[in-house]
């Protein structure tokens, strides 16, 4: 199968699918796409611990499941703790000779709410303890599963059902919590941002996460057509616009060294990213320019971080 030639650098079986079709995700869901791509790199020897959220409810109406990997869901806020327990069990059972000695990827998966809000403590604990696990935050920038409520990962100015714009409100009144840098502050071996609109960048990062000896944190921007109020066929495009405008830079932090992995020649205006999204349609030009200033500053800071940390 020639078509998979380039993919074979990242995965053993490019045509393997670990999420069966027939799941109940919305049309154009970039979140389930991100997982589908990530699992191709992770491969068969993987155990998943998943938080309550979109990916959980689209996949497992008892007695059905669409997971071809061992999968467990316990609650909303404890994914990293559950993954810690699995990792510890696999380690000790292997050490005692009760399990075959081979590398198994232990992967915790949660949304932005399950990561930056309610699961924050469990995640920090797991990263600090140094478990050999990969934590994937699927960031669609709000509590989409419960009906588009704001999280600390919702961007400034966005409409959500609990941050509605009005006479006395701009919408979301706070700036997006910077989870990747918070994860990096735990001094873990690998942190990266990714987006399924850039599949090779994503493959590369999942592959690195898989290979490090210690915790890896992947923060994946997962465009949500339903919550962002965009046409479902535009999900990939909006991921690209988020990256090309600098709103969501693709970078990695490898043993403390920051590196931008996709550097546009010049950043496109933030307005190009914002203008077609229903969740931002109430924003005035002045407010958009405020966001532009913030994005410029953040980009500059990231660029400096890359320079400073370079070996």
């Amino acid at each position: 199968m020639k078509i998979f030639k380039t993919l074979e650098r990242y995965m053993e079986k490019p045509d393997a699918e670990y999420i069966a079709s027939g799941h109940r995700a919305c049309q154009g869901c970039a979140e389930v796409l991100a997982l589908r791509l990530a699992f191709k790199v992770l491969g068969k020897d993987t155990i998943l611990a998943m938080a309550t959220g979109c990916m959980e409810i689209i996949s497992t109406p008892l007695p059905l499941t669409c997971w071809r990997l061992p999968w467990i869901h316990i609650a909303f806020e404890n994914t990293a703790a559950v993954a810690s327990g699995i990792e510890s069990a696999i380690r000790i059972l292997t050490q005692k000779g009760k399990l075959e000695n081979k590398k198994i990827n232990i992967v915790g998966i949660a949304g932005d709410g399950g990561t930056s809000d309610i699961g924050f403590q469990a995640l920090s604990g797991a990263l600090e303890r140094g478990h050999r696990l990969i934590y994937i935050c699927l960031d669609n920038e709000a509590y989409m599963n419960t009906g588009i409520q704001r999280s600390s990962s919702t961007p400034y100015g966005a409409f959500t059902t609990t941050s509605p714009p009005g006479k006395k409100s701009i919408g979301q009144s706070t700036w997006k919590k910077d989870m990747p840098k918070i994860a990096a502050a735990h001094n873990i071996p690998y942190v990266a941002t990714a987006c399924p609109s850039y599949p090779y960048d994503l493959f590369n990062k999942v592959k690195k996460a898989k290979e490090v000896n210690g915790p890896a944190y992947l923060h994946i921007l997962s465009v949500c057509p339903t919550g962002w109020r965009i046409p479902s066929e535009m999900a990939i495009e909006y991921g690209r616009l988020a990256v090309r405008s600098g709103v969501f830079p693709l970078y990695e932090v490898e043993n403390g060294v920051y590196r931008i992995t996709f550097k546009p020649e010049s950043l496109i205006p933030v307005k190009d990213y914002i203008k077609g999204q229903g969740r931002f349609r109430h924003l005035t030009d002045k407010e958009i320019s405020e966001i532009q200033d913030r994005v410029n500053k953040d980009w500059e800071r990231l660029t400096k971080l890359c320079e400073i940390t370079k070996a």
């Binding site: 155990i47 559950v82 810690s84 327990g85 510890s88």
Partner: peptide, 10 residues
């Protein structure tokens, strides 16, 4: 939560 994960892993 970790006990649940560990017990589920055997």
């Amino acid at each position: 939560s970790a006990c649940v994960g560990a017990a589920a892993a055997g």
